[in-house]
């Protein structure tokens, strides 16, 4: 098992290296320069570019970049979005608010998804199942910005129950009230995903032979369902839930735009539009790292949760 983990981590860094290389080249090949302010004289721009090694060949630039990241932990410095602030700090500063909203949203959506999924599976092909299925289809197919705009219009603008946008300076109840709408808007998707997934798994396990055995050996319906069907259905569900938890770091571009949340969601697009290359690359590395770690955690968690894989791997 240890060997397997080490292999996976090495493979992860190789993947990351390839991603970083491609990202660096693509970003540097984009038209336009970091220092394209028309008010600056050409000599100043040349001096700035020379300082950032931009006048050197691409390969040399890449060497400087790698040296900075690996040896000094220097991910580059933001030029436009927040001038002279290290790109890494720009990112880190924005993570907490994104994290907070997304975690709250997951804490709401997971239990709801599990409850709806269980009801739908146990009442398969009855009214409750059909109603939940309709809800799931709507939640999955309608994009989140439609929900977000609707919530904003109806609950905030018309009924005035919540603030229209996020208030970063508010505290206590007011702060939470201003987060309520984005939390709701973010929850629909995960609720639907978990519901649909759990229903499918549960329907299958409820009809399995070992459920019949659980019943014939003398457990009642509730005991058999909770101890055998439910536990077994949650195993494949980790495949869906763990990525949800790591993806929250990425934030949601659309939702954060609509509710004016200063999170990480919009930073990538903004940095590309502003030609802030160091920041773009830093964000790319960050996202890649999060995704790769997620895949690693999901794979390893399977080995920990599922005894069949855990014991076989020994």
């Amino acid at each position: 098992m240890t060997r397997y983990i080490i292999e996976r981590i090495i493979a992860m860094f190789i993947t990351l290296f390839i991603i970083v290389t491609i990202a660096f080249c693509v970003v540097r090949m984009m038209p336009g320069s970091v220092y394209d302010n028309p008010e600056l004289p050409q000599s100043v721009i040349d001096a700035l570019e020379a300082k950032a090694h931009l006048n050197e060949p691409l390969l040399v630039q890449y060497g400087y970049f790698l040296k900075g990241v690996i040896l000094e932990g220097d991910w580059g410095t933001s030029v436009k979005i927040e001038p002279s602030v290290p790109a890494f700090d720009v990112l880190v500063k924005r993570i907490p608010v994104t994290l907070e909203i997304n975690i709250y949203s997951l804490l709401i959506s997971l239990p709801l998804g599990i409850i709806f999924g269980t009801i739908a599976a146990l009442r398969k092909n009855k009214l409750a199942d059909h109603l939940i299925s309709v809800m799931v289809v709507i939640c999955i197919s309608v994009p989140s910005f439609v929900f977000a705009s609707l919530l904003q219009y109806v609950l905030a603008f018309k009924l005035e129950l919540f603030p229209i946008v996020y208030e970063s300076t508010a505290v206590g109840v007011q702060r939470f009230a201003s987060m309520a709408l984005p939390i709701m808007a973010l929850a629909f998707g995960p609720i639907a995903t978990v519901t649909r997934y759990l229903r499918g798994e549960l329907v299958e396990t409820v009809n399995s032979e070992f459920m019949t055995l659980a019943k014939t050996k003398g457990l009642n319906q509730v005991q058999a369902t909770v101890r055998h069907a439910f536990r077994n259905s949650c195993l494949p569900l980790t495949n869906v839930i763990i990525p949800m938890f790591t993806n929250v770091l990425g934030g949601s571009l659309v939702i954060e735009r609509i509710f004016s949340i200063p999170g990480v969601g919009g930073i990538m697009i903004n940095s590309i539009n502003a030609n802030d290359h160091p920041l773009t690359i830093a964000v790319l590395i960050f996202y890649s790292l999060v995704s790769l770690l997620t895949i690693l955690i999901v794979d390893l968690s399977y080995g920990i949760i599922d005894p069949r894989i855990r014991l076989e791997a020994k």
């Binding site: 019943k215 050996k217 055998h228 069949r308």
Partner: peptide, 22 residues
């Protein structure tokens, strides 16, 4: 009655046991 008075042995022992329970 189930289990306590009438017990049942299944056709397929491979799928009759819960795969992830000791």
């Amino acid at each position: 009655l189930r289990g306590k008075r009438i017990g049942l042995i299944f056709q397929d022992p491979l799928s009759a046991l819960n795969p992830i329970m000791k």
